[in-house]
Each structure stands twice: as C-alpha cells, then as structure tokens.
Write a protein that binds this DNA or RNA. Structure first.
Lengths: 328, 328
DNA sequence: CTGAAAGCGCTAACAC
DNA sequence: GTGTTAGCGCTTTCAG
C-alpha cells in the first residue's frame, strides 16, 4: 500500500514537511508559487491525508458513534439517515453499530467507540440495559452522549425523545372526535416503558373525554401476534382500532384484509408511526407522526450544542402531529 | 479528555511502555505477576487502546467502508445489517456512507474512506456514475473493492449481484404455470440496466413459453407512479400483474385496494422482492426472492477472500428462489 | 516565507 | 523478563 505522504511530497519537491502541510491547508505564510507546486503534485500523486495521524496528533476525530438496536426499522432508519446527512455535511463521519438489543454487544460497541476516540455518541439503549455508568464515563471524558428514543431514566443524561404519552393522547382524541364508541387498542411489549406510557395516556384520554366509549386493550409484541390478536379482537366488532406502532399496524391490517373488512366503512384505524407504513395502504391510515427524521435533526443539534460547550443537560421531546389519511 | 495511555500506566507502575504493551496483549515474555499488576491497573484506569495510534503504527485499520445510495431501503438495509454483523463478529468496524445517488457525494465518500485508510470497501454505485477509475485506484493500493447490486460493467471489478434476468424469468414461468393469459408488467426506471435486463427476460419468457398470453408493459419510476399506472392498467382487466420491485409492488397494491379488487380472485400479483413487502399483505404476495441478507453474506466472504490474498476477480450472483404466497 | 524538532500513542526490532 | 529506540504521518510551536 504505497500511500502518498507529506514526507514523500516534501522529498520530491525539496521542501520541508511543514511547508507541504501548510501549503495544502492554504496557510497565509506560504507563497503562491510554492502552494501551486505543492497542490499540483499532491493532486497527481493522489494525496489523501491520513485521518489516523491527524486524529492522533490533534485528538479530534471528527467521528460520531451511533448505537442502535437495529438499523432495519423504519424509525431508526429515518433517524440514522438524518444524522448521517447532517454529520457528513459538517465533515463528521458516523460509525453505526447495531446492538441487537443485547447489552453485552452494546458494551462492546461502546468499547469500539472509545477505541476510535469518537467525538460524540448517539445511543438508543436496549430495554435490558440497566447499568448506564459506562455511558456516563464518556461524559466525564468530555465526550457528549445523546440518548435517543429509548433513554435511561437518569437526570444526568441528555435525551431526545418522541412524545410517548402525548401521541397516544392525540390518537385518542381523534378517535373521540370521530365518535368512535367501541375502541380496540393494540399495544407492544407490556414491559417497555413506552408501552406503559402510551397505554396509560390512551386509556385516560378515552375515559375522560368519552365516558360512554368502550375500550378493549390487548398486547402484541410482534407483527404476527398483532395479526392473530386482531382476529380475536374483531369478533367483538370494534368500530376502531388503535395501533401503538408500525409493527402492530401491519399485523392489524393483515388481519383486516384477511377478514375482508373495508376501511373506514367497517371500522376505523389509527396508528402511531414514523410515516412510511400508513402510506402503504389505500386508504392511507391516519396516524400520529413520531418522526425519526425530526428526532435525528434534534439529536444532531443537541450534539452540536454540547460540542459548542453547553453543559446544560438537555431533555427534549419532539412534538407529534396528526396526519390524516382516510382510515377514520 | 484525560485518556489513559500506556505511558501513564508505565509511569505509575515504574515499568517501561513496552512492558505494559506486552503485558496487555498477554505476551509470553512477561511474568505472570507483572501481567496481573498491569491488567489490574489498566482496568481500574479504564484503559482503552487508541485505535488511531494502532492504525497509524500497523497500517491495518480493521475498518471497512460501505457506500450505498440510501440506507432507507429494504434491500440495502438487509445488506448492511448482514455485513455489519459479519464485520463486527470478526473485529471489523463499518463506516456506512450514503451517496443519495449523487456521484459527487459518492466521490466525497470515497475520499473519506481513503482518509480513514479503510481495509476494504463495499460499494453500490449510483446509476450516474460513469467514471470508476477512483474505485480502481483503491484496488491498485491493495484495498479490495467489492461492488454490490449496482455494479459497473467492467471486468476488472469484483461483483456480487442478485440474479437480474433470472428472477424475472422465474416470475414469468410462475405466471405461465398458473395459466395467466393477460399479464401486465410494471417496471422501474427504463434507463437502468436492471430494468432492461428484467424486462427483456420477462418478455422473452412469456412469449416463448406461452405464445397465447397477452403482455402489457409499463414503467413506473416511483411508488406513486406505480399506483397511477396501475389504475390505468386495470382498465384492461389483466389477470395478473408482475412487479419488478418492492417500490412498484406497493404502488400496485394501493391501486388494487383503491379499486376494491380482491387477490387472487380478481387478479394475481407476483413481484421480485427482498421479502419484507410481500408479507405486508393478506394474502401474502408470491415473490421471487432477491435477498439483501444473502447478498451481504456473499459480499463479506468475497471481501475476506480478497483479504486472504485471492487475486481472482470474482463475479458472483446469488440464486433467486420463489416464495409462494397466496396471490396467484 | 520556510525549516527543524517535538510529540500524539502505539508496536516491534533489538539490546541486555 | 524488561528496557531502549525508532518510527507510523501529521500538526505546531519556535527559530531563522
């Protein structure tokens, strides 16, 4: 691997390494002719600075770490795409690591980040992660950590989240305004905080705003479960189904198609979503948007704030918006 | 950022840097007691080796670059997840870069890869990329380049692809065996090689195997187009629709739902897919699988072969399989 | 305007 | 068994 280095260029040109270095970064000290000679040779030799050497010397890696349970997920995907874009635009690279919701892989990923001397970390912790000390240690070393989506319940952490409870409330309100009377709600893993928050908010809103409405709640950890649970739920003839997530929506829709029911004639459907899944169907499903893209933007600017010296602990939540389809 | 270094440990322990370095990598020369002392202190000081220093010294980065048009795509997503997994398992990290199908961003990403002295590159070029010299330059520097999915038409390149033409042939055969007589085929961007190959194979197979079958071809570069084109196509009352990709399938299905048609009663549907989209519907759509996951595995082992010293140019294609849903 | 020299953190001969 | 040394490629004082 015969890489061009400053030294090589300097030898060919009979100049010192520092002159080459300066010329290449357009330092005012260097004469125009020298600059031109240097730049020319560098170009023909296809010089690319060695990032490792620069990082080592300057201890500024221009590298962010991003740890996420899985990149194969609409929401996280949108988040990553958004962060990647902003990072690239600002000269940062991204090291994307999947944890598979396994705390031990998570720790390993963290190690990798530290070894690469990342400038900052974006992390969505796995549900089983209880010990956040390793993450806090980064903070002590002045490496900002932005927790996103699934965040630890700890005041010392910077967090950016979607509106958990509020999204459910908004969906509930929409159902009520559409005069739904027998509402089924399908939720995800009951052990997750997000499920509990959404369920509580949903139930509360329905009961408070419409004492008359009947509510049927069930849980479905996966799309397949959602489909079979929906088959059961449909026997009760609800006039609307609320889905807590995209995964659930897809199961619900399969069940509805299987039963040959028509939306919104036979029943209404509303979901909380990043926005892609509801648009798969006709009519498009009405949803409360929790945007991975927006969350990414927010996480990035939160990161920049930290890097800019802000020591203020940020705990941000993006607002949700209702996107009307034709499903209610 | 007060990072622990070998030097620091050596000073505390009154040993030399090299002893620490050796102790930490369990070098046989070092006595057991020394090793223990070193490892203990390293642990309490939370030592993490500086990857930049190591890479600089050893010029072996254990880092792969991966350039892809977009990570928000079922197929590429599966590919990335698969490569990431294999890489991580083998101690490699992945630098994932999106090009947005923009050749200038692509070149920039390539620069980044070179600056970070990647060990190897996985790349899916944008359709507009005509000059592959920059990629070949990497090869000259002994950095393996594995082109995947959208690959240049150049014999010097290592390639891993899905079966373009064959998948279309398989779908066509399936339609014929189901006695479809009036078949609509919806294809993507007509300028892309993959579209041309699939169209040609599809048309050829239908004509050869079933002279009687009527074929209606149209193009739809996006999901929205696919939906509106399908609305038109449906007026001709085809008894089956072939979709060239997931994006098209989704548009087709929306149109079918909009028209209130029922599958497979009113018409059959078959698609080429990575596997996720066809499972969104009931009945699940029959598809010819072109698996991003499998392609990732293949790309990774191709990379390993190159790294292992193989100079043989590989041009690999994964076989497709037919996955039967209930849509025909 | 240009050069010399130190040093970022680490590895790997080569000594002893 | 352990220490010394040189050097990976670069930036950045400090001299001249």
């Amino acid at each position: 691997m015969n890489n061009t280095t400053l030294k090589k260029i300097s030898e060919i040109l009979g100049l010192s390494i520092s002159t080459i270095s300066r010329a290449l970064k357009d330092h005012p000290d260097i004469s125009a002719k020298t600059k031109q000679r240097v730049v020319e040779l560098a170009t023909t030799l296809d010089y690319e600075p060695n990032a490792n050497a620069i990082n080592l010397r300057t201890s500024n890696s221009k590298l962010f770490g991003l740890i996420v349970p899985s990149i194969s997920n609409w929401f996280y995907n949108a988040f990553i795409a958004s962060v990647e874009e902003d990072s690239r635009r600002n000269g940062y690279s991204l090291m994307i690591l999947q944890s598979g919701d396994d705390p031990s892989i998570e720790i390993n990923n963290l190690k990798l980040c530290r070894q690469n001397r990342i400038t900052g970390l974006f992390v969505c912790i796995s549900p089983e992660t209880t010990n956040i000390e390793p993450f806090l240690k980064l903070k002590e070393m002045d490496i900002p950590v932005i927790f996103f989506d699934k965040v630890p319940d700890d005041a010392r952490c910077n967090k950016v989240c979607v509106a958990d409870a509020l999204s459910a409330t908004m969906a509930a309100n929409e159902l009520i305004s559409k005069k739904k009377k027998k509402i089924a709600g399908l939720f995800g893993n009951p052990h997750l905080l997000i499920t509990q928050k959404r369920l509580e908010a949903f139930r509360k809103t329905i009961h408070e705003k419409s004492g008359a409405a009947q509510l049927i709640i069930d849980y479905a950890p996966s799309t397949e479960d959602a489909e079979s649970k929906t088959i059961e739920l449909l026997k009760e003839k609800p006039d609307a189904i609320f889905c807590m997530s995209d995964e659930i929506l897809i199961g619900v829709m399969k069940a509805i198609q299987r039963k040959g029911l028509s939306i919104p004639k036979d029943l209404g459907v509303i979901t909380i979503s990043n926005g892609a899944a509801p648009k798969l169907y006709f009519p498009e499903i009405t949803y409360v948007e929790t945007s991975g893209h927006k969350l990414g933007k927010m996480a990035y600017s939160s990161m920049m704030a930290c890097l800019g010296g802000s020591t203020f602990i940020q705990d941000l939540t993006i607002e949700s918006i209702l996107v009307e389809g034709g499903s209610l």
